[in-house]
Every structure is written in C-alpha cells, then in structure tokens.
C-alpha cells in the first residue's frame, strides 16, 4: 500500500470529511472538504502511529495537513523517503 493510500484511508477513518472520498485527490483542500481542527489532530495522531513517526512542532501546522500531497511530503521527509513500513496494511481496517 502506498503512502498516499494510507493517508486516504486514514482520512476516511479519522477525517470525518463531508466530501465524497472518491472526490479527494492529491491537491483537494481538506479543510474545505470538511476536515475540522479536531479531526486533523486525530488524523495526525493516527498517521504518527501507523508510520511510527512524530511530527515535529514545525509540522504541527494547518498547512501541512491541508492536502494529501502536503501530508505525504511531510511523511516522506520524516521517513527519509523509505517505502511504507510493512506492518501498515494489517493495522488499517
């Protein structure tokens, strides 16, 4: 499963988006799609667990969680571009 797929599934589970999931692409503004501040925190915490990473303070910002693309960029930076860890598939429902 790609990082993008994992982000999309995490958004589906924790993002409580108003917009249809199939309409979310790489650059959709997730806040405009209904992502609330509290839901973005849940997405952030879930991604930390799944990727075994910790977003540093500089990344705990609205802009970082604005789109699938910006989230992916942050995760890639924190995982130094490594492929998605193998344990991810099992943890996602």
């Amino acid at each position: 499963m790609s990082i993008t797929d994992i982000i999309l599934r995490t958004l589906a589970e924790h993002g409580r988006l108003a917009a249809d999931r199939s309409l979310i692409d790489d650059h959709t503004d997730l806040y405009q799609a209904g992502l609330t501040s509290h839901a973005s925190v849940n997405v952030m915490l879930a991604l930390e667990g799944l990727f075994d990473i910790e977003f540093p303070d500089r990344m705990l910002r609205r802009g970082v969680f604005r789109s699938v693309s910006s989230i992916r960029q942050a995760i890639e930076e924190l995982t130094a571009g490594a492929a998605s860890p193998p344990q991810l598939t099992g943890e996602l429902k």
Binding site: S37, S40, V41, M44, L45, D57, L60, R62
Partner: peptide, 14 residues
C-alpha cells in the same frame, strides 16, 4: 498535549 499544539497553531493561523 501535542494535538493541542496543532489546535493552537490552527487557531492562530486562522
């Protein structure tokens, strides 16, 4: 908490 740092940053940005 850490989630709170993000909420605070969101609140300021907006």
């Amino acid at each position: 908490g850490r989630g709170g740092r993000m909420l605070a940053s969101n609140q300021r940005e907006q």
